[in-house]
């Protein structure tokens, strides 16, 4: 029994080490100076931060971070509002029409945006949405709505109807009812949605690479991919840039880990 326990412990340590390898190599490369050609496996015995400065400037990460924040924050707020509002009638009034509408919304889950890229790109160009925040936000919101509606509809269904009814006696209007009674109860699923769509929008590459071409409007992923193809040989810079790009979410993840793991898996677990 005891030997089985230590075997499990050793296995879990081996797994942990194996999964840390990519991050370890990234860090060791990012802190090495240009003239150091030692293996990536070897940590430098000095700390060189010049790569970070160069990556920040040459990849235009300053404006990329700003763009990422604008697009992510706006998209997430809109996804939560539009998704929660849409789910209320779908969960509460299961008429034939609304059952059909629910299927329509959910079926979009299996339409990857890439499959409709050609017409979508043309459409955004026609609307003058290239390099604009609004097009990025509209697309990110739209494609994050199916999972949001799925989660909210499921969750609202678990809130007892009596709560609505109790509020009706007080004469709360329907909309007022939604904001005053229902919305505060939705906190857990709202946290899930914020994390799920926040991570998706922050890390988005597929929309950004197509619709953002102006160097002032690039998001982190596109800025890094351009930087990467330009400075392919300067590994220290590229490693430092990658590290900077993943830093904000990694820090959030380490502090709010429980919510992240629950949230990102809830998209699938809630059935």
């Amino acid at each position: 029994m005891k030997s089985k326990k230590s075997l499990v412990l050793i296995l879990s340590i081996i797994i942990s080490i194996f999964h840390m390898i990519p991050l370890y190599l990234l860090v060791s490369t990012a802190f090495k100076n240009d003239s150091d050609t030692s293996s990536k496996w070897r940590l430098p015995d000095y700390v060189f931060t010049g790569n970070f400065k160069n990556a920040w400037e040459n990849a235009h990460l300053g404006s990329a971070f700003f763009n990422n924040i604008v697009i992510t924050v706006t998209s997430v707020i809109l996804v939560v509002i539009i998704g929660a509002l849409a789910s209320y009638p779908l969960a509460r009034y299961q008429t034939k029409l609304n059952k059909f509408m629910y299927i329509v919304f959910i079926s979009a889950l299996i339409v990857p945006p890439l499959t409709i890229l050609v017409p979508l790109y043309q459409f955004i160009v026609d609307l003058g949405g290239l390099n604009s925040y609004w097009a990025m936000i509209a697309l990110n919101v739209t494609f994050n709505l199916p999972i949001t509606i799925f989660l909210y509809t499921g969750f609202i269904g678990t809130i007892p109807r009596e709560l609505d009814e109790a509020a009706m006696i007080d004469g709360a209007s329907r909309i007022g009812l939604f904001f005053k009674i229902i919305l505060p109860l939705l906190k857990p699923v709202t946290v899930t949605t914020i994390i799920l769509s926040g991570v998706a929008v922050w890390n988005d590459y597929q929309f950004s690479v197509f619709f953002l071409q102006d160097s002032e409007r690039l998001t982190i992923t596109v800025a890094l991919s351009q930087f990467f193809s330009q400075y392919n040989n300067n590994l220290g810079w590229v490693a430092a840039g990658s590290l900077l790009g993943m830093l904000p979410l990694t820090i959030l993840y380490l502090f709010l880990q429980r919510y992240f793991i629950q949230g990102l898996s809830a998209g699938a677990v809630k059935d």
């Binding site: 797994i15 942990s16 999964h19 840390m20 990519p22 991050l23 991570v199 922050w202 890390n203 590459y205 982190i220 992923t221 890094l224 991919s225 990658s242 790009g245 993943m246 979410l249 990694t250 959030l252 993840y253 380490l254 880990q257 992240f260 793991i261 990102l264």
Partner: peptide, 13 residues
Amino acid sequence: TIVYLPVIISPLI
């Protein structure tokens, strides 16, 4: 925590 970390990193990175 370690095994889950890559989920939040951009697939491109």
